[in-house]
């Protein structure tokens, strides 16, 4: 299977503090990988480094995304290339409607890829369809981005963005946090529906098995002290749930 993402010996720091310390990870097309690990292990840092957040400095190593050096690209170019980050804490943007923002994002990606812009009418149809699938009130599309949304609504909105933007690789940082049981099911269905495709992949960052009950991972990794310290199949998550990280982080 072709590799969508290949990370080699990745070292990265924030505020001069080394967080990732030689991380290796390969994600093939059509695969779902879960990363688990204790607090402070570097899970969110990994997601920010891959998506290009300012302040996160790569000091060594490489990351190839569909054969291209990810670190040669600006954040918006990474997104246009097909990388999507589902934020743990989605940002509120007052004064810009969800629909306006989503269309701006979709068209910006198309522009970067040299494609024609999508018309307002066509876009509304797509967005409304995805909103319906996620149980999002169409009125929410008119509201400012994430402003006044509950935690669950924000996460559903992230999934809405993912569904509209149709990325190749979705890095979902604790998408399950703050979700009630029904919302977790809806969000999981969305991940499966949008991303369970032969040419798409998911990197799920989570603390809990419950998300993995709905989105079955092909691989589970344990990230501790800035490195992948163990990898396995879905059974690894069950083992971690049962026994904790124990010696893995000692």
């Amino acid at each position: 299977m072709s590799k969508l993402l290949e990370i080699r010996n990745l070292r990265a720091e924030v505020d001069n503090k080394q967080i990732l310390k030689g991380l290796n990870l390969e994600i093939g097309a059509g695969e779902i990988h879960a990363i688990m690990g204790p607090n402070g292990a570097g899970k969110s840092t990994l997601s920010y480094v891959l998506s290009g957040k300012p302040g996160y400095t790569v000091t060594d190593g490489s990351a190839l995304f569909m054969g291209k050096n990810l670190f040669d690209m600006e954040p918006h170019e990474r997104a246009a290339a097909g990388l999507f980050l589902g934020f743990q804490y989605p940002v509120e943007i007052a004064g810009v409607s969800n629909l306006h923002f989503l269309r701006a994002a979709a068209n910006a990606q198309r522009k970067t890829r040299g494609e024609d812009e999508i018309s307002a009418g066509e876009f509304i149809k797509i967005a409304s369809k995805e909103a319906k699938a996620l149980g999002i009130n169409p009125e929410m599309l008119k509201r400012p981005v994430n402003v006044g949304f509950s935690g669950g609504e924000k996460k559903r909105n992230e999934m809405m963005q993912m569904a509209v933007l149709q990325p190749k690789l979705a890095i979902l940082d604790e998408t399950d946090s703050g979700l009630d049981i029904d919302a977790l099911r809806i969000v999981s269905e969305s991940i499966n529906r949008v991303m369970r495709q032969p040419d798409r992949s998911v990197l799920l960052i989570t603390h809990y098995q419950r998300l993995l009950d709905h989105v079955k991972p092909d691989f589970v990794h344990v990230l501790a002290k800035g490195q992948i310290v163990r990898s396995g199949g879905p059974e690894l998550a069950l083992e971690l749930e049962r026994e904790g990280y124990g010696e893995l982080v000692a």
Partner: peptide
């Protein structure tokens, strides 16, 4: 960064 992570270039993100 949130806007840029969705594919919007820095100038357009600033304008938004």
């Amino acid at each position: 960064f949130y806007l840029e992570s969705r594919g919007i270039d820095p100038e357009e993100a600033k304008d938004l």
